[in-house]
Design a protein around this nucleic acid. Structure first.
Lengths: 221, 221
DNA sequence: GCACTAATGTACGAACCGGTACGTTAGCTA
DNA sequence: TAGCTAACGTACCGGTTCGTACATTAGTGC
């Protein structure tokens, strides 16, 4: 990728199945994220690789399967990142805040992934549903949230009656919306939600919101 | 739309520019929302109207302009609904909660609109940016939020340092995500965020979250 | 009732695009 | 080094799809 190719081999197309496959996946990710499933062009993906369209069909079978493979890899990256989570040594409040911040950062750093998820939702998650890999991918983050939540609720720190899935949805909502809808939001309300100058503001706002919700005084209930 | 057509006119195509235009717009909204911009088929839109493809080009010019017209009308509907907002007679806490609930309901009732917004974001809001109508559409809801927020902050009820745009983003995030991403979320986490049985739960959760955030004890700051 | 135009229908073209038939070669193995 | 196969390239096909040229008619104004 970093212009290291000519020196290694003078001319003749070397054969490297793994590299070719990975290169197709990389370019396909970019193209699908750029234009959506129907807007993406198989020829365009091929043109950006060092191989030809023929190889896309050779390795993946077709456009549909290629998109599924792109999704599988993208979700795999997320899952791997979630497995690195290390927040359980913190007290529940700090742990949840840290988790929210990491989710925030992750969304910001994986713009292509956010687009792929939006696109997949337009297609009603049909590729995910049909994928065996994605059916069983699980979510390490959910387990982490579950344990922190249990600790916080047991100690009486957390008053809210939520489970891990709902809390995950709450955190993801804000992170996802901020990135995915920044174009229409910016155009209509004149505010760029991803302006670096406001990044810390929104990151703190998310943490404040989640903690306020979890620890709110619920005397009135 | 309710099978009232044959009795009125026996056969010959009656001419009604307004009706034809509106019918095209209706079907285009459905088709674009169903399949995305590139996935939508002009022929399919035409087939669902009582007129022909020719009329789409006659009235709108092309696919691109048709999509812009669809967006313009969809956003117009939202704006009109927002102008009906009547919550300022309530105290700030109740007013914000009510506003959040109305936003929640509105998202749930306009699934096509949510999809169109997702699609427009994939295209980086290019149609909105290019539309004069949408550039000047404004947001009545923002003004309402601004006033409630000012009242709440002045009285000391609201401790959070947010402005109307950010609060609107917070509320919209949850409402939008719940509907727009329900397919991938459901497939991956096994929970249907739009299950009617959980509707009240999420509606209350949103209100709780926003109010908790706005009124949180910020002694530690 | 005549003329004019807005509104509508038909038929078709040309480019695009996913997919494939067919041929070739690098590199490993025996 | 001969032979075999995974890996690759070229050229092309056929259906799809946006868009339009051309013909027609309903309704309106005079």
């Amino acid at each position: 990728m970093t212009s290291v190719e000519e020196p290694a081999r003078p001319r003749g197309r070397t054969r490297d199945a793994a590299r070719t496959r990975a290169e197709i996946l990389d370019m396909a990710t970019q193209e699908f994220a750029r234009a959506g499933y129907d807007g993406a062009r198989v020829d365009e993906i091929a043109a950006r690789t060092r191989t030809t369209k023929r190889m896309i069909y050779y390795y993946f079978g077709g456009k549909e399967q290629l998109f599924t493979a792109v999704l599988e890899r993208a979700y795999g990256v997320i899952r791997d990142a979630e497995q690195q989570l290390d927040v359980e040594h913190l007290d529940p409040v700090a742990a949840i805040r840290r988790l929210a911040e990491l989710t925030f950062d992750h969304h910001e750093q994986h713009l292509d992934f956010i687009r792929l998820v939006s696109i997949e939702n337009i297609h009603e998650a049909e590729h995910i549903v049909a994928s065996e890999k994605l059916a069983a991918i699980g979510s390490p983050a959910l387990d982490v949230i579950r344990r922190i939540l249990a600790a916080g609720q047991e100690s009486g720190l957390f008053t809210a009656d939520v489970d891990a899935v709902d809390l995950h949805a709450m955190i993801s909502s804000f992170c996802f919306f901020r990135v995915a809808n920044r174009h229409t939001f910016g155009a209509l309300f004149g505010r760029d939600l991803t302006d670096p100058a406001r990044r810390e503001h929104y990151r703190a706002m998310l943490g404040d919101m989640v903690i306020a919700y979890l620890t709110a005084d619920r005397a009135e209930d």
